[in-house]
Every structure is written in C-alpha cells, then in structure tokens.
Simulated assay, not measured.
Amino acid sequence: MDILHSITKTISALPAGEKWEITAQNLWLSRADFQSISVYLCRESEKGHFSITHTADLSIPIGNTSLWVTKH
C-alpha cells in the first residue's frame, strides 16, 4: 500500500518528541480503511519507535477517524 509507505516515511522523519495527527479526512480514506491503518500502526508502535493515542470523540465512541503519533 502506498499510503502505508507514505505514513511510515513521515513518522520516521519526525523529530523525537514531535506529535502528528493522522485523520481519515486528511488521508481521504473511508472509516474502514482508516481503522485498518490504525490497527497496523498500533502493532508497529509496539516496536517502540513511536506511540499512538486515539483522539476520543464522545459523539462517535466507536470507529474513531483520527489518532496522534508521537515519535520517540
């Protein structure tokens, strides 16, 4: 997937401590595609190079369409 390559390249270019918000709207993705990418990024974050924080939207508790990446 080209979008995964683009996201991982952007994350690797972030300076340590930098945060980046990823949204389905900015990536022009459906909610389902964004959820798949979110799962992938959560698994990748287990390696310790970055962490993921889901943005809580109380009006939409399931199917979040944004997350924050923090580079370590």
Rank of each mutant, 00 (worst) to 15 (best):
M1P: 12
M1N: 14
M1V: 10
D2F: 13
D2Q: 14
D2L: 14
I3T: 08
I3S: 13
I3L: 14
I3E: 11
L4Q: 13
S6L: 11
S6Q: 10
S6N: 14
S6D: 11
I7F: 13
I7Y: 13
K9V: 05
K9M: 11
T10K: 15
T10G: 14
I11P: 06
S12Q: 08
S12H: 10
S12W: 05
A13L: 15
A13I: 09
A13W: 11
A13C: 13
L14N: 05
L14M: 15
L14R: 08
L14A: 01
P15A: 15
P15L: 14
P15H: 14
G17A: 14
E18K: 15
E18C: 06
E18D: 06
K19N: 05
W20F: 09
W20K: 05
E21I: 02
T23L: 00
T23R: 02
A24G: 00
N26H: 07
L27Q: 13
L27W: 03
W28L: 02
W28H: 08
L29D: 01
S30F: 09
S30I: 02
S30L: 11
R31W: 01
A32P: 00
A32W: 09
F34R: 03
F34W: 01
Q35K: 12
S36R: 05
I37G: 01
S38N: 12
S38Q: 01
V39R: 14
V39S: 15
V39H: 12
L41F: 01
L41G: 01
C42Y: 06
C42F: 02
C42R: 14
R43A: 08
R43H: 02
E44R: 07
E44G: 05
E44W: 09
E44I: 02
S45E: 12
S45I: 04
S45M: 07
S45D: 11
E46L: 11
E46I: 08
G48D: 03
G48V: 08
G48L: 00
H49P: 00
H49E: 15
S51L: 06
T53D: 13
T53K: 14
T53P: 03
H54T: 02
T55L: 03
A56V: 02
D57I: 06
L58T: 12
L58S: 05
L58C: 04
L58V: 06
S59Y: 09
I60S: 04
I60V: 04
P61L: 03
I62A: 03
I62M: 03
I62H: 12
G63Q: 00
G63F: 10
T65H: 05
S66R: 03
S66I: 04
L67P: 06
L67N: 03
L67A: 07
W68I: 07
W68H: 09
V69S: 07
V69G: 03
V69N: 09
T70S: 01
T70W: 02
T70L: 07
T70M: 10
T70I: 02
K71M: 04
K71L: 07
K71Y: 03
K71E: 00
H72L: 00
H72G: 03
H72T: 00
